[in-house]
């Protein structure tokens, strides 16, 4: 398609538009980084300085020493990794089940998965609080793990369903002939083939969990269980807003996302192609 007459011009046009988009994407990130390295007076200079007058690591130091961000990170990592594993686990079984079997209520179940996306989650806060309360889980990491896995399972199931649909049934049958049971076939043959889909689903679940704010705010009450998102929100102080600390913490909070994304991004597009997009 690029061999058309206008191909070269079109290519330049593409670069121009993409570069413009890149500027819009990266400028806020630059401002975030620049702010994170500013000291307290530079922060409020008018007109604002685009780059720090003087690079300082004060804010980065402060988030570890004055605020318990180490603890927040530890909490977030435990919560989000567990929730991701649980969600992807349940979702792959359920997705495989829907893709391979017909059973009464299958259509209703699929519809239910979609419906879960329709209800304003704000109102689930209260019932969640009382469930966690009766379980004695308020202010525990487990409460967040349970909540985040629940919230991501529906769409993860939907994604995995789409993905397993794309794997030929003949493979299951071949595996059965080889003497592997249903479960064996699933674990040994189908799941490995589904890895890109799993990766995409896992990225989705991870991002959702890492970014969640409102439920974490309500379900946690002390610093030893608060996740990073709530920690960042709490930097909007009562007496002032610590913009440089806030941006430093945000920057550090991005790192795990970048790592996960960096490792799995190759699978992301492949996974999404096979997954949710084949409605």
């Amino acid at each position: 398609m690029a061999s058309n007459v206008g191909g070269v011009a079109f290519r330049y046009f593409s670069y121009a538009v993409l570069s413009a988009a890149l500027v819009v994407v990266l400028l806020p990130l630059m401002w975030l980084i620049s702010t994170a390295f500013k000291d307290d007076t530079d922060l409020f200079s008018t007109p604002p300085s685009v780059f720090p007058e003087q690079f300082t690591f004060e804010s980065f130091l402060r988030i570890w020493t004055e605020y318990p961000f180490l603890q927040y990170f530890q909490n977030s990592i435990i919560v989000v990794l567990s929730a991701t594993i649980i969600a992807v686990g349940f979702a792959s079984f359920a997705g495989y089940g829907i893709a391979r079997f017909t059973f009464p209520g299958r259509g209703a179940f699929l519809l239910f998965l979609l419906m879960t996306q329709m209800f304003p989650s704000i109102l689930l806060l209260i019932p969640y609080y009382s469930i966690m309360q009766s379980l004695g889980l308020i202010n525990t990491l487990l409460a967040l793990i349970v909540t985040y896995s629940t919230f991501t399972i529906p769409l993860c199931t939907w994604m995995m369903w789409g993905f397993f649909k794309g794997i030929p049934v003949e493979l299951d049958e071949a595996a059965s002939i080889d003497g592997l049971g249903r479960l064996g076939a699933f674990v040994r043959i189908i799941l490995p083939l589904g890895l890109p889909g799993l990766a995409a689903t896992a990225i989705y679940a991870f991002i959702q969990g890492w970014n969640e704010y409102v439920f974490a705010l309500v379900l946690t009450q002390t610093d030893d269980v608060r996740p990073v998102s709530v920690g960042i929100g709490n930097l909007v102080g009562e007496d002032r807003i610590f913009w440089n600390d806030l941006m430093a913490a945000s920057l550090v909070a991005l790192i795990p996302m970048l790592l996960i994304f960096g490792f799995l991004q190759r699978h992301l597009i492949a996974g999404l192609t096979g997954g949710s997009v084949k409605g």
């Binding site: 994407v25 806020p28 991002i207 704010y213 960042i232 909007v236 945000s250 909070a253 991005l254 991004q265």
Partner: peptide
């Protein structure tokens, strides 16, 4: 390269997006 860089904003926690844009 474009593909990877343009995905970046999706990775930002909503809290960060909101506060960053308020600051901008």
């Amino acid at each position: 390269v474009f593909r990877v860089l343009l995905i970046l904003p999706w990775l930002f926690p909503e809290v960060v997006v909101a506060l960053l844009w308020s600051w901008i």
